[in-house]
Amino acid sequence: MTEILRTEGLSRYFGAVTAAEDINVTISEGEIVGVIGANGAGKTTFINMVTGYLPPSQGTIAFDGSPIKGMGPRKLMRKGLARSFQIPQLFLELPVIDNLAIALSAAEHRQFQMIRPVRTPERIKAADEILEQMNINHYRDEMVTAMPQGARKLLDIAIAMLGNPRMLLLDEPTSGVSMEEKYTLMDTVMEAVRQRGLTVLFVEHDMEIVQRYVSRILAFASGEVIKDGPVDEVLADAKVQELVTGKHHRTPEKEGDA
């Protein structure tokens, strides 16, 4: 498989505090990779560095073969690297349809148009399609403030996907979502991801979710990747059990086995 993301010696320090240290990761196109770790393990710092939110203190990042270190979110988005957030970053006082229409106009490089309305028939059609795919079409004309947390997460991910990315980084897509909704939400997201053939890296605390949807895990502890490999291998690792999952972690059924 073609390599899409590579980080070498990636580190981030906040004064004397080490948030991430010597992270060496290679992700291939089409992979679905889970990032696990306790709070403060460096997962979000890693995502933030890769997506240009936080400049690394050391190391290199390459996306699709070209260096991207130092690039801001805008340039990275144009290169095909998109992300969602642990707390959905949305335009709360705007209708859902406008949240999507703005994203679509930006994806078309038409964000500076002054006369043509942002809600063109083509954009409305595209917005309706993704709303339907994410099962949140009933919120179409509502303000984002009227949406529950799970729907907001889906809208946040939908917006990220509208930029036609090749790789999607999801920061805790199920946090703040009820147990009953988690699987429905992830099924919806993964179906959309599969249809677009995206590479996905997602941070998650829920091991059952991780096991169900990913083929590979990066386990973080104290800012370092302590284990990188197939799901069963990583979860069976003694150090991962001690520092991340807990020793009595059980192994539920994988997606498709149920």
């Binding site: 335009f91 406008d98 148009q113």
Partner: peptide, 17 residues
């Protein structure tokens, strides 16, 4: 109601996004 007009409102709401 244009792209830039809505982008202004979007900036008021959330510059990061």
């Amino acid at each position: 109601k244009s792209s830039i007009g809505l982008a202004c409102e979007a900036i008021r709401e959330n510059e990061v996004r």
